[in-house]
Design a protein around this nucleic acid. Structure first.
Lengths: 218, 218
DNA sequence: AATATAGTGTGTATTTTTTACACTAATAAA
DNA sequence: TTTATTAGTGTAAAAAATACACACTATATT
């Protein structure tokens, strides 16, 4: 009838051709020294939205990230001391915005670190299940949401965009067809700028036009 | 940190060309005499799956229905006496299986009744929000899931199937194109039977081949 | 200055899918 | 037999998806 109530924050980014998830090393029992999805208890009169923000910040040092609900996990045996219901949230962040910023504020976690989605450590509690569900949702929603653009810098190349699609879908895509399709959708703005700092031909940069996107998908 | 924990069961069916949802009339404060989504408290050591089954049965009299998680609602003000976290579940049932069977087992609800989705009474708590989210999910998942076939009798006509699509999508569809597409998908089994008891030309009956469906969508 | 390297950027033909559109056939009831 | 009501069907046009390969360009290296 009464249950402990926590929130877990699945925070995903994209860097070096790879989907990454932010995990924290626990400094408390149970699962001391294990890697876990950053999460903590919700306070008595705290709204979930506020709690997600606070917990994400306290556990990882990250601020101002938009999180949406993934699912509730409430298995009686997920915590050794009895049921702890957790509501998992999912967020996507731009790597450039967060690099060098991930550092727990609280002592409950010893450190926070990005892990490649296909090279995860063993995880505390049922956190593996939570991540699997997150990946599944990510995959299904890919083309109807702004997710890829939340993972990429404000200005990105079509190759980067394709890499995001490929790493989420887990398959390679044809370059010409991918570009044709994306450009035809009409919500990408071609910029007059190119990549810099590459030792080969610099690629054109694009932005997403969020208004046009929303007109198209809602 | 501790919160009350309940489960609400959104149970949907299809009857007479209309999507219907099962609501219960509350017999307890708060919201006594209001219509509400059937729901109740989860017990201490009860797994969610077990709780959903039990609560659906106790509140509506319905057994053996498959429910999947929709979302958690935990607003501090959703209940006048403080936070009550609810995990909403969603189920689809065949009207023929449930007609004349909806009757609360417990005294907490006075009666259970089907309401057309587009003619709902005022609802207790934030139950309106829950239903809206359910409808949204229903709409997005329509063509990737077996939902339409859970709402229809085992044997159904293509017209009935089209009506389900139309009432969920909220738009009319072209009959020839709809049939062509559905039949081409290849997971419908044409039967050697026709409708009976209609005062016009009887339509052919179909079944869904769940194996073929699953092969196609997973 | 020449060369190697690595990723950028592009077109066309084919197949598949989607869309638009209207009449005849079958049955039961009157 | 007439009427009412729904079932059932085809085709052409447009749009979208797929398969497929090479020349270009910017830089770094020698």
């Amino acid at each position: 009838m009464l249950s402990y109530f926590t929130i877990d924050c699945v925070i995903v980014t994209f860097h070096e051709g790879d989907l990454k998830v932010l995990l924290t090393e626990r400094n408390e029992y149970p699962y001391k020294d294990w890697w876990a999805i950053p999460g903590f208890f919700v306070e008595k009169d705290e709204e979930m939205e506020a709690a997600v923000k606070r917990i994400a910040y306290e556990m990882t040092g990250l601020k101002d990230i938009y999180m949406e609900q993934l699912a509730a996990f409430a298995g009686v045996k997920r915590h050794p001391e009895g049921r702890i219901l957790t509501v998992a949230y999912l967020a996507f962040v731009k790597y450039e915005n967060v690099k060098n910023k991930v550092k727990p504020i609280t002592n409950y976690m010893r450190q926070a670190k990005w892990f490649s989605m296909d090279d995860l450590p063993e995880l505390a509690f049922d956190h593996k299940d939570i991540l699997m569900l997150a990946m599944k949702k990510l995959k299904t929603n890919l083309s109807y949401t702004l997710t890829p653009y939340e993972l990429l810098p404000e200005k990105f190349t079509l190759t980067q965009l394709q890499q995001v699609y490929e790493s989420i879908l887990g398959q390679t895509l044809d370059k010409r067809n991918f570009r044709k399709k994306m450009v035809n959708l009409g919500y990408l703005k071609e910029l007059d700028e190119c990549q810099t700092g590459v030792s080969y031909r610099a690629a054109r940069l694009y932005k997403v036009d969020r208004k046009k996107f929303l007109k198209l998908f809602s």
